[in-house]
């Protein structure tokens, strides 16, 4: 046994899309250690169970935000919680984005779907330190305009290039339509001096990382966030294995240099 949840109160609940909400949490008593961007928590829904969720916001007050999509019993339960409800949270777990690795380099952030949520604290971190980082590019792919999270916020980000593309536009959409990788042609970065951060569905991660590598971004500077079944988050349950990687310990964010081969083997 490792780690007992700590009570956190839901202080705000914001629906992001039809099936996704962002919960802002504040500790009821003592807060957990600070989370780094890309790290995750095990979030407990009373009577239903626990799931791993990345932090989508880290407050100086010890507050956290989690963006959760209702895809299973626990995530659906968490999405139904209301302000005032108490959840259990344990963490921080895993290796995050490690934005410091991009110091003095251009930054390319590529988000697919709800993958934008775990990238959000990273984006805010690098945008807050324009002197430390080179040109920051934020590339976002979504299913439809209605599935696009944090739309207002995205427009305010002072990135060198911000691109949003959707798979299927609606009547009002005036932006790009197509795969998120097409936006890479318009991003402003010097591939050999770039660190990329990629999160989204696995096929999107593979396509994006390959594209970035073919442009000359070194494979060990392409950071990708991976997902597998996770029960303990402490390296003891064996569920999150991806070949040699125990993702709760070596990940969820790993270098493409380490992920490329395991991801190329079907059903590994």
């Amino acid at each position: 046994m490792t780690g007992v949840p700590v009570p956190y109160r839901v202080v705000a609940r914001r629906p992001e899309t039809a099936d996704t909400v962002t919960l802002r949490l504040e500790p009821v008593g003592a807060a957990l250690e600070d989370f780094a961007p890309g790290q995750f928590a095990m979030v407990h829904c009373f009577g239903r169970g626990e799931i791993p969720v990345s932090v989508s916001s880290v407050q100086a007050t010890g507050g956290l935000a989690h963006t959760i999509r209702a895809v299973g019993a626990v995530s659906a339960g968490l999405c139904e919680t209301q302000a005032g409800d108490v959840l259990g949270v344990r963490g921080p777990y895993g290796v995050g984005w490690e934005p410091e690795r991009a110091r003095g380099r251009d930054v390319v952030v590529v988000a697919g779907g709800i993958g934008l949520a775990p990238l959000r604290p990273l984006i805010l971190r690098v945008l807050a330190e324009p002197v430390t980082y080179g040109r920051v590019n934020v590339l976002i792919g979504a299913r439809t305009p209605a599935d696009l999270m944090s739309r207002k916020e995205i427009e305010r980000w002072p990135a060198a290039y911000t691109g949003v593309t959707v798979d299927r536009p609606d009547q009002e959409w005036r932006g790009d339509v197509g795969l998120v990788t097409t936006l890479l042609d318009r991003a402003e970065f010097t591939p050999t001096n770039t660190v990329a951060f990629v999160c989204g569905p696995e096929p999107m991660i593979r396509a994006t990382a390959r594209d970035l590598a073919s442009r000359g971004v070194p494979r060990e500077r392409i950071r990708v966030s991976l997902e597998r079944n996770m029960r303990c988050a402490t390296g003891h349950c064996g569920h999150c294995q991806l070949g040699p990687l125990l993702l709760c310990q070596a990940g969820p964010v790993v270098d493409w240099a380490d992920a490329e081969h395991p991801l190329s083997v079907r059903e590994l």
């Binding site: 009373f46 239903r48 003891h236 349950c237 569920h239």
Partner: peptide, 26 residues
């Protein structure tokens, strides 16, 4: 072999819940 999974076990009131670990298999 060390793998385990977890289960949520609630009582009838629904206000007491327990987290159990049990052996699991790949």
């Amino acid at each position: 072999c060390f793998c385990t999974t977890t289960e949520e076990v609630t009582d009838l009131t629904g206000d007491h819940t327990e987290r159990w670990q049990r052996w699991d298999s790949c």
